[in-house]
Design a protein around this nucleic acid. Structure first.
Lengths: 217, 217
DNA sequence: CCACCGATTGAACGGTCGTCTAGCTTTCTG
DNA sequence: CAGAAAGCTAGACGACCGTTCAATCGGTGG
């Protein structure tokens, strides 16, 4: 058991971390969190000030956890440390689930994380362009942003994807499977360039129609 | 004005449709919905039985609206009718916003829609494979599912994407911009095939490490 | 004109929720 | 070891929520 020797404060946060995404903020009561953490309701507010405070703490905790796991391996090459990876895979599911929920809610901390990831992505694109790996666009930030939402899509829609794949995509097996498929799609592409052109043209035509409609009314 | 001559029932549903995604189900009170629809709280429950009933009605309404707009143009070629497109663009924002929220919540109706879209996608892949446009995979359903979560990512993460692009991606301009970018990414791909291979290898190595770790403990 | 029926209201009820307070227990510290 | 500080609990309070209900309004068919 790992959760036995946790601080009461940590137990509360852990319980909240699991309950908020599944039941929603309104559906999660302070009493339920307290009961799940095996403490009194009063203690929850003693440690976190208010329910809102607890929510904000969870937001920050998750974002900072992700942030730590995202940068550490780059910093000191600890990607080769099995313990580190084991930690990622074992801790990840509740954290990822919360992150998805947090992003969908538009929580401030999650929004900040999104923006950081976007900056990182833009920077990587710039490097890749210099190396001639990808072609420059007239709208580099937008391309990076769209790519990011596509990559993060499965984090928010994990439930549906897990159902379709009959595997929890936040567990190790599903995670590697999804990652591999996504990398494949993003490397080779899927659509036919010819079909792309005609689709784009009909899209432009539709836009123009609507624009004219609006001007006339 | 279009909303003036709406039935009270329709006004309530419309108000709920806008409030649920922004304030959450717990944060949206029957009284607030009633006030926004300019009716009494009692009438809300008279028409929808309960708050839960109203929520379920909204879920179904949105899904059925999307379903209608998705199939109609294919059925009778009404894609050329400007009125139809104008309707899509003018109705879309609240509906799409609700859909994103609904998908993130894992609402039953949204889940059913997801599964339908997945089936459709699988079917399209099958046709495309016959025509030699895309290569077959050993995991066709999974590929279609991952693609679907990528495509739907922007619907759920519209807030962040809109912020990054400084445009409402549910409005006409943003919608066409995002669609074009996404089609481009999914057509040409982004990553370097060589880099893909090394990434995949390190991913496999990591997985193996974790697997060994777990077996030993 | 009356009887009826759905739409609609507004007040009221029971319940639960977030929060506060006073006090008890444990741990740290000088 | 005394006492302060922090951890923690039980109970209560006020607010607000979803829901109920009796009563009213407005139109429609007999």
């Amino acid at each position: 058991m790992r959760s036995v020797d946790l601080t009461a404060e940590a137990r509360i946060r852990r319980a909240a971390l699991e309950m908020f995404p599944t039941r929603g903020v309104g559906g999660t009561t302070v009493r339920a969190i307290a009961s799940a953490a095996d403490v009194s309701p009063g203690l929850v507010l003693h440690h976190f000030g208010s329910k809102e405070g607890l929510l904000a703490t969870c937001d920050r905790y998750v974002v900072e956890t992700i942030r730590r796991y995202k940068t550490e391996p780059l910093a000191d090459g600890s990607l080769n440390d099995p313990g580190f990876l084991a930690q990622i895979f074992s801790i990840a599911p509740p954290i990822l689930r919360y992150l998805g929920w947090s992003l969908a809610r538009g929580a401030d901390a999650a929004a900040a994380l999104f923006d950081e990831m976007l900056n990182e992505s833009v920077r990587m694109f710039a490097v890749a362009e210099e190396q001639g790996i990808v072609k420059p666009t007239d709208d580099d930030t937008a391309r990076a942003a769209v790519l990011l939402t596509m990559q993060l899509g499965f984090v928010v829609l994990h439930d549906h994807l897990s159902r379709a794949l009959d595997t929890d995509v936040f567990e190790m097996d599903g995670l590697t499977r999804v990652t591999a498929l996504m990398m494949d799609i993003l490397t080779h592409g899927l659509f036919d360039p010819v079909a792309l052109q005609s689709t784009r043209e009909s899209l432009e035509a539709a836009t123009e129609m609507v624009r004219r409609e609006r001007r006339d009314s």
